[in-house]
Structures are given as structure tokens and as C-alpha cells.
Amino acid sequence: MGNEGTDRSEVVAVSRDRDHRFSKPVVDEVTLVEGWGIEGDAHAGTTVQHRSRVARDPSQPNLRQVHLIHAELFDELDATGYTVEPGQLGENVTTRGVDLLGLPTGALLHLGDDACVRVTGLRNPCQQINGFEPGLLRQVLGRAEDGTVSRKGGVMGVVVAGGVVRPGDGVRVELPEGVLEPLSPV
């Protein structure tokens, strides 16, 4: 797991936004803070920060401190006529060469020299994606051949070790011990 046709699994872009907007501007670097998320990002915090989740129960733990998407999704979307760039789907970290959707719950993603994110689950694509580009939701949320829901909108995680992350940094996957549990939406 981790290398799919590239010489190296890496970070291709990082994004953050202090405000709750759908897309996040690409920046030169982000600082991950243990137990908090990305410094200066609206979704950082120990409790839920996504508006819909805050409305339901603001005391829930924040399992969505960091949103990661694989750049291979953008390649796939481009082949269907949709042009999507890093940060435009609201992710904080865009990777290449890592099978994010195939990771088990609890996998650790070591980003650069120091930062580490524990994967908590899948991002559940929502209707806002169609506001960004009409029809895009059906490209990132569909049905697999067996009839199950297929979510391609990336993964969510929590910061377990802080550090600065920049484009070009390596990504190393560490699988959890024991029985590997597939990702489910968080």
C-alpha cells in the first residue's frame, strides 16, 4: 500500500482557511498541531467544527481535524470532464501515490519529518460539491458494482504528532496492529 505508479508517495499540496468555506486556498506550508488539527484552519479543534455536526452536538470529539484527498481523484475527474485543483474540494492535504481510500481505520500517515495523522474514516461527500461544480457529486459518491455506496471524497483524520508539512514531503503509511477495519464515514 502506498506506491501506485509513482516513485514516491508524497504531499503535492497543502491548504487551509480560517473561514468555513467549501474550497481552501493552497499555501506554502501548514502546521499540524497534536490533538487540534491545522493551525489557522476553521476545522481545527478538539470538538467538532463542521457546522452540521456542531448543530447536532457541539461536544462530539473532532474526528475530522485534517481532510486528505488523493490527487489521483483529480486525474479521474479530469478524464470525465471535471477540472478540480488541490484545495478546491476543501481538503487540507493532497497526496499522490497513497491509496487513501484503501487504508484501514487507525492507519497512521507520517507526513514529512515530524507530522502524523491517524485516519478516522471516509469523508462523506455532500451536496455542496454540486454547488462547486454541477454534477460533480455523482462522480465522487456513487455505487460500487456490488451495490454498496462508493465514497471517493478522501479521508479524515486527527493529528497525533505535530509538525510542518509542505508540498514535496514524503508520506509513509503505518498500518495498525490487529484486525484491520475498513473505513466508514465520519
Rank of each mutant, 00 (worst) to 15 (best):
T148E: 15
T80L: 15
S59G: 03
G170Y: 00
S23Q: 09
A115P: 08
E174G: 08
V173K: 02
A42K: 15
G112M: 06
G168P: 03
L32Y: 07
A42V: 14
E133T: 11
P58K: 06
A144E: 09
P185M: 13
C116W: 01
R123A: 13
V186N: 03
W36H: 10
L180V: 02
Q139A: 01
D57Q: 09
M1L: 09
N62T: 01
V171Q: 03
L77T: 08
R123S: 10
P25D: 13
H20T: 06
C126P: 11
L141G: 00
Q127I: 07
T47Q: 09
G97V: 08
L32I: 03
V33H: 02
V155H: 04
L32M: 07
G135F: 07
G97S: 00
L122S: 03
G135R: 05
D146M: 07
D146W: 05
P86M: 10
D41C: 06
V171F: 08
R96P: 01
Q128I: 12
V48H: 12
E133L: 09
F132Q: 00
Q139N: 12
D17F: 04
Q139T: 00
E72D: 13
V179F: 05
D169L: 02
S150N: 14
C116E: 14
N62A: 12
H110V: 13
H20G: 13
V26M: 11
W36V: 11
G153F: 04
N3M: 11
G37M: 06
H43F: 13
E39P: 03
V26W: 09
I129A: 15
A44I: 10
I69P: 01
S23R: 08
H110E: 11
A42L: 02
V98H: 01
L136F: 02
H43R: 14
G45L: 00
G37S: 09
R96W: 12
K24C: 10
E76M: 10
G106D: 06
G162T: 03
D7N: 05
E29W: 04
Y82A: 08
T95P: 05
G153Y: 13
N3D: 07
T46Q: 08
V158F: 01
G90E: 05
F22R: 10
L183Q: 10
V48A: 15
Q65P: 07
R51K: 15
I69Y: 00
V48Y: 02
V173A: 12
V14T: 02
A161G: 04
A107E: 00
L32D: 12
V164T: 13
D28E: 15
P176G: 04
V11D: 03
V98D: 03
G170I: 01
L180G: 06
V179R: 14
P176M: 07
L111M: 12
V54D: 08
H50N: 14
G153E: 05
S150W: 03
V30A: 08
A44W: 04
T31D: 12
L108M: 02
L63S: 05
L73R: 07
M1G: 14
L109A: 04
V140A: 09
G135C: 00
V140D: 00
H70F: 00
